[in-house]
Amino acid sequence: MLKVKSGDLNRMGLLFERYHRELFGFLYHMSSHADASEDMVQTVFYRMLKYRHTFTGEGEFRTWMYHLARNVLIDSEKQNRRSAQQYDVQAYAERIGGGPLADESLHKEQEMALLQEALGRLSADHREVLVMSRYQELTYNEIARILDTTEGAIKVRVHRAMNELKKIYLNSEYER
């Protein structure tokens, strides 16, 4: 990235190849929207080019990438606040319900959809730490650096997030 910063823009392609899948995964789990996430991937890389002078080289590139990604997510949430795009678990359950699935796999699919919905209903703070540690496989230390806090604070947040998720998920399961 430092090479990119000093003007070698072709190096950006390398970074794209290495990180765009990871970035997409993060944006997808945060927004539950594949199309929007693809657009956001584009925006993040565009901002990397545009604001490359803000990359100090002290932190890791990945940390910087997540910084930018979080800002993009906040921007898009502002835009979508009116048209709340929630994962429609009902439609999903109906869709898989119609298929000739074995009972067991049907059950699993439904559980998965419910879990996904529960994740979507978590507060952004809680959702973020869970997505980062579970799906992005970032260590608590790395997450702490991205969020500019201590590892201990992240662990507390993960703990609270798990409790919240448990509550939402088990309630939704009970409601069925």
């Binding site: 392609g13 991937v41 584009q42 080019l49 699993k108 994740l119 579970r134 799906y135």
Partner: peptide
């Protein structure tokens, strides 16, 4: 562990083309 079963889709191929166009 159940969270791990939630699939992460792959970005579409147009993401790459769009990126290089943008670059």
């Amino acid at each position: 562990q159940q969270m791990g079963t939630v699939p992460t889709p792959q970005p579409g191929p147009q993401v790459r083309t769009q990126f290089y166009a943008m670059l």
